[in-house]
């Protein structure tokens, strides 16, 4: 299986030094488990390609172009000529406008599907690939997708391998000069000013310090509380189970297994008792 990893020119949030965005380094690790991977970077600076070698790629292509120009055209052209089975990208490229649109635009240009938020991938039978997609609360969605496909990587994917100087030294970079492209196709560049950090919205801000503490600890939301005193442990257990069933985290008593997710919890109890 052949994989192309899209690379962008990130910067460290504290030091401002150039770095490879974390999800892209994760993408490299994921790609290494699938087959031969090459890196692809479009931009004025070769740094991301060099960093990607240190994170585990053997080969990366740097397509030089002016800062601010649209990377989608050169990227798509290169991908068409390389014809990889999978195009991997970080959740959102850094260094440019950071709209996260590039993988989507590339997928549209190539006419292939895009699957966001992958945490694991395995090759399946002929021309298919199995992708685990991260959903909230630890839930996964396992997709079987026909290649070629564009996949973006979720931060919950396995952590990236650390940068290894020796690997960076050994890998090779192909430098390509791109044909001059239309500057940021269409829309005029938006007005820019230095970023000013604003406080995050507090979900339930109150007036006094006590109110704010309550908002932070969530006490304010405890409405209709029920406190039971002088109960036997058995009655207490019944109350607890009834409450858990009412809020829907515990399967009703008539269900097959003890927990809401029978297979998983049986498994867990086996672990606990062994």
């Amino acid at each position: 299986m052949r994989i192309a990893v899209l690379l962008s020119a990130g910067r460290h949030p504290v030091s401002g030094k150039p770095t490879l965005p974390r999800t892209e380094a994760q993408a490299i690790r994921m790609a290494a488990g699938l087959g031969a991977a090459t890196g692809l970077h479009v931009g004025p600076d070769a740094f991301p390609a060099e960093a990607a070698l240190g994170h585990g790629l053997d080969y990366a292509a740097h397509i030089a172009c002016a800062a601010g120009s649209d990377p989608v055209g050169p990227l798509a052209a290169r991908i068409v000529s390389d014809a990889p089975d999978i195009v991997l990208a970080g959740r959102r490229g850094q260094g440019g406008d950071e709209t996260g649109l590039v993988p989507y635009a590339v997928a549209a240009r190539l006419g292939v599907p895009i699957v966001p938020d992958a945490v694991a991938m395995r090759p399946a039978t002929d021309g298919l690939v199995e992708i685990d997609q991260a959903l909230p609360k630890g839930v996964l969605r396992r997709l079987v997708v026909r290649t070629p496909v564009v996949v973006t990587v979720h931060p919950a994917a396995p952590p990236p391998l650390p940068f290894a100087f020796g690997k960076a030294r050994r890998g090779s970079i192909e430098r390509i000069a791109a044909a001059p492209t239309d500057l940021a196709a269409g829309a005029p560049p938006p007005e820019e000013r230095p970023y000013r950090k604003r406080p995050k919205m507090m979900r339930a801000a109150g007036g006094s310090a006590a109110d704010r503490l309550k908002a932070v600890t969530g006490e304010a939301t405890a409405g209709g509380a029920k406190v039971l005193d002088h109960q036997t442990p058995e009655d207490a257990a019944k109350e607890v189970l009834a409450f858990l069933r009412r809020v829907g985290v515990l399967a009703p008593a008539s269900a097959a297994g003890p927990g809401r997710r029978p297979a998983a919890s049986e498994d867990a109890s086996r672990h606990a008792t062994s």
Binding site: T217, G218, E219, A222, G224, A225, K226, V227, L228, D229, H230, Q231, A236, E239, V240, F243, V247
Partner: peptide, 8 residues
């Protein structure tokens, strides 16, 4: 105090 169901 924070709980929806508190059991003493």
């Amino acid at each position: 105090a924070r709980a929806g169901l508190g059991i003493i």
